[in-house]
Nucleic acid binder design. Structure first.
Lengths: 349, 349
DNA sequence: CTGAAAGCGCTTACAG
DNA sequence: CTGAAAGCGCTTACAG
């Protein structure tokens, strides 16, 4: 009665193995293995017999054993800085769907945007034998990181943020998105435009800042009205007054992302300003709430789900052809115009 | 030059193994294995030597191989209906943090709230040899599902929704949450209260409906003013008028979740009603946006991150003691009063 | 198209 | 505290 003193053991002990299936179907183990892997080498009749046996015995493929021999785990690691942020959740959703469709599975980890945690997590991924990883690099990732990846010979694609040109990257054209926002505001007559930012500093941060500056400068507008608001959602509304502390009073603000945008809409309202009338505002990301807020939010859409899909495809391609040169898939953004921007009268000029 | 025609192979080929480490450190493989698993049987000096060897050789533990022998994968499956919903993303975040702290890793899957996909995904989880799974069951999960789990002898905990009393469950007391909402509104003098719902039908849905009805009935109030709004966020504002189509005109609405709440705030605004003044509204979940919307949203908080933590702890406990009787951890909700409710004047009674 | 043998990298008793 | 041997459940050449 070994099942009595090792209660959890009976599952494992009684596991039906490929050999059981083979014997039941009266073939060799190798043949059974071939039908599992859908090899064309096996005759239809034999295949049917083996499949019946698998069903009758309730066979479950043991990927762990297969992996040991075949050196392929059908597993990809995904590491993001923060699961709680809906933006990353959407990225993850896109990744998961294409990885799943490829018959693989995602192992998830959270770096907390901390390099030490990221190191731990990367080690864990290697221990689990992932075939590759999709990584949104922690903001402070060191310059030696790409070298280590290289050494490990671990297929890796960067998502949303990039730290090396020698590895695949899936992201969006943040700078062009900023141009679209500035362009729209400028066309409505705005000349003094603020940029509200927060969060950690990384490539996507720089690209937005650069994009903003460049777009402003190319129109002869002052590019330095950049204000930092708190990271915590709940504290953003209270920081709206920061927009007006300098000598140049903006008539519009572009937001680093929609959580800032939503927060500032509330904060500006608290200050007695009417967004979409006496003040204009553009968000970034175009989250679902943009449609549901009053006034409806004009926002630059980045579609994180499709970035996730792109990242996963990039990785799949690399797995099937490791010699591919590094590729970048950088999506275009799209300005979704709703109600949060108004034109400034000629008087203002 | 085998690395020339099998370019991806050199990683695997050159893998440093436990035997390499053992030889380098001049001990047997078994001893090396013991130091990895932190066994107290190994002397300090030997341990140090082995650890040095691991470092020098860049050894990476092969969990896949260990699992095959030890029948433990240090892996837990998590299956949710939808990653895109921030609510599930937060649940996942809570799960990930405690699973990670336990030195294990989560394998993620998305059921799309579809039973066929759920079946697929559960099979995949078994193939990957997860030690257990945390499942938010798809709405239409059949009554035979628990039996199959039982047969598979797969440790499983239900999260947010439950389909069987014989398995662990981590959730929140939805019915009590509805009581808190109704109580608050009733204390402000509201007598005709609507309940706006949407989405799939499952235990958490029923509990909220029952909770609402019971709370209304116990106060002698009409419990049947339940209106179904669209599932798509963007379409919810347009459905606000549904609240007033019956003969009984509500002065307040309780929302199934905060995405409905946010949508109806917008929709009521479009109808010229002032939420928090001429109409009252309570949300459910207390998402971050509740604080950032005007008027600030009064909402029943459900704290999905901590539900995820509870679910993960339940699973960890079960893994270490499979004979534990099934347990339920049902969190209390908390009414977070902000600005979206007003009292109705005596005149209304 | 099928079979017998070896091996993937660990852990597990079992001796010493 | 350490070593030699067997085995976890597959896949991979290699013969036939």
């Amino acid at each position: 009665m070994p099942s009595e003193d090792r209660p959890s053991g009976d599952r494992k002990k009684s596991r039906v193995t490929l050999l059981d299936v083979a014997q039941h179907a009266d073939v060799s183990r190798a043949t059974a293995s071939l039908v599992i892997r859908k090899s064309p080498l096996v005759g239809a009749e034999t295949r049917a017999r083996v499949e019946a046996a698998m069903r009758e015995l309730g066979y479950v493929y043991n990927l762990g054993a297969a992996r040991l021999r075949a050196e392929r785990s059908h597993t990809v690691g995904v590491v993001v800085p923060n699961l709680t942020n809906p933006f990353f959740a959407e990225l993850l959703s896109g990744i998961e769907s294409v990885i799943d469709a490829a018959g693989m599975v995602v192992i998830l980890a959270n770096s907390g945007d901390l390099v030490e945690r990221q190191d731990m997590v990367m080690r864990r991924m290697r221990e689990h034998g992932v075939d590759g990883v999709i990584l949104c690099p922690a903001a402070a990732t060191g310059t030696d990181f790409p070298d280590r990846i290289e050494e490990w010979n671990l297929p890796l694609v960067q998502a949303l943020r990039h730290i090396s040109d020698d590895m695949d990257y899936a992201g969006v054209d943040y700078a062009a998105g900023m141009h679209q926002a500035v362009e729209h505001l400028a066309s409505l007559g705005h000349r003094i435009i603020a940029f509200a930012v927060h969060g950690p500093i990384h490539s996507a941060y720089h690209e937005r800042i650069e994009g903003f500056r460049e777009a402003m400068q190319s129109r002869g507008l002052e590019p330095d009205l950049i204000v930092r608001v708190p990271d915590q959602t709940a504290q953003i509304p209270g920081s709206a007054s920061l927009l007006f502390q300098g000598t140049a009073k903006p008539t519009a603000v572009i937001c680093f992302n929609d959580v800032i945008a939503l927060g500032l809409v509330a904060g500006l309202h608290d200050l007695g300003l009417k967004v979409g009338e006496s003040f204009s505002l553009i968000g970034f990301d175009d989250v679902a709430e943009a449609e549901v807020v009053r006034p409806r939010l004009t926002s630059v859409s980045t579609a994180p789900v499709s970035i996730g899909e792109n990242a996963a495809k990039l990785l799949l391609d690399r797995l099937s052809d490791p010699l591919l040169p590094p590729r970048k898939v950088v999506k275009a953004t799209q300005l979704h115009i709703r109600q949060s921007c108004a034109s400034v009268g000629e008087a203002v000029l």
